[in-house]
Design a protein around this nucleic acid. Sequence first.
DNA 1: CTACACATGTAAACGGTTACATGATTAT
DNA 2: ATAATCATGTAACCGTTTACATGTGTAG
Lengths: 197, 197
Amino acid sequence: MSLRHAVLAALLSGEYSGYELAKAFDVGVANFWYARPQQLYLELSKLENDGLISGREVVQRTRPTKRLFVVTDAGLAELAHFAAAVSKSSFIRDDLLVKVQAVDHVDAAPVIAQLDQRAAAAAAKVEILDKILRRLRGDLDEETYLRHGSPIGPYLTCLRGRRFEQEHHDWSVRAAALLRDRATRNGHPAPTSDQSR
Amino acid sequence: MSLRHAVLAALLSGEYSGYELAKAFDVGVANFWYARPQQLYLELSKLENDGLISGREVVQRTRPTKRLFVVTDAGLAELAHFAAAVSKSSFIRDDLLVKVQAVDHVDAAPVIAQLDQRAAAAAAKVEILDKILRRLRGDLDEETYLRHGSPIGPYLTCLRGRRFEQEHHDWSVRAAALLRDRATRNGHPAPTSDQSR
DNA sequence: CTACACATGTAAACGGTTACATGATTAT
DNA sequence: ATAATCATGTAACCGTTTACATGTGTAG
C-alpha cells in the first residue's frame, strides 16, 4: 500500500479533483510518485470509503461537475503512522538501462536514438521543476527558503526530482556521445541526432 | 515484460546460476534492475522453456549442485528486438519521498531518522559501485576506458547507478540536516543521528 | 548440533498497467 | 460537425511481493 499514501501526501497541498491530481501525477511533475489516472480514481474511491479523505461535489457552469477531495483527521493519522514505519530502499528500474547494459551485443544505433530522446525529455522536466521551485519559494533565495520557508516537504521532494532529472540528462548525453564516437571509429554510418525535422 | 530482458542482459556478462544472479540483482549491485531471488528462478525457468537461455548442471563436491545459464542465439535476437523498441520513461517511486512530502504535517523525527539510514546505505552502495568500476577498467583511467575499453555497456550502467546513489546520499544528508535544524529552532528535542551505539 | 551460506523452487495475494467505456462543454 | 479538454470510471491481465517450502554442505 503505497499509492495510497502518495495520494494522501499530495492532497495535503490543497483540494484537488481526480482529474487535477492525475495531471500532477502523470504529466511532468510526479516528483515523489507516479500513477495513471485510472489508478487515481480507483484509489480516491477507496480512500473515501475508508474515511481518509472526504469529497465534495462542485457543479460548474462552464465545465462538467467535479469532485474535490481533502484529507480528513483519520487520513492525517494514517499518514503519520506511515511516515514512522520503515520504508524499503529505493532502486532504479529502467528499460533503457537494460538496453545500454546489452549495447556491446546489439545494434547501438536505436539505443543511441533513445538516449537522445531521454536527454531531451529530462531537460524539459528540469525546466518544469525549476518553475515549480521558483513558484514555491517566491521572493526568497533558495538558502533562505530552505531554512525558513514553508512548506518544506514539497520543496525538498521537488529538489530531489530536479537533481534526478538533471543527472539523468547528463548521463544520457554523455552515454550517447560516447556510443556515437565508438560507432564512428568502427566505421559505422554515425547516426546523428537528426530528430527527423 | 521487462525482468525478462534484464536477466538476458545480465547473462551476457557470463554464465551464472540463479543464486549468483540473485545476489547481483538483490544485494548491492542492481545498477540497471532489481529483483528478488524467487522472481529470478521463475524467470530463468520461463526463459529456458522459451529457448532464450540454456542451462547446464554443474555438480560440485563441496557445494550443492547448481545450474548455470547462457544466452542462446534466440535470446540475443530477442534482446536486439527489445533494444530497438520504444521504452517507457523512467520515474522515481520512493516511499521515503512520500514521507518527506508530508513532513510539514507529520512528526519529522522518524523521517529524519530514515533519511540518515538512507544516506548511510547510499554511501555504502557508492563504495561497492566504485569497486566494480575499478575492477572493470583495470589499469586504464576512466577517460581512456570510456573511449576504448570493453565492455562499455556494463560500465555505463554502473556509472549511472553510482551517480544515482551519490545524488541520493547528498540529498538525504542535506534534507536530514535541514529538517533537524528546523526542529531544533522550533524548540524540539533535536534528534541526533545516534544510531544506538 | 546449531547456525550459516549455498542452492532451488511453489502458491497466494497484491499493486499497477492496458484496454475499454462514457459523457459534458468549448473552440475551430 | 469535429477535435480538444474536462471529467470519471470498470474489467481483465500481468508483473511483483510475500509467505511458504525443501534440502546440502561447512564452520564453529
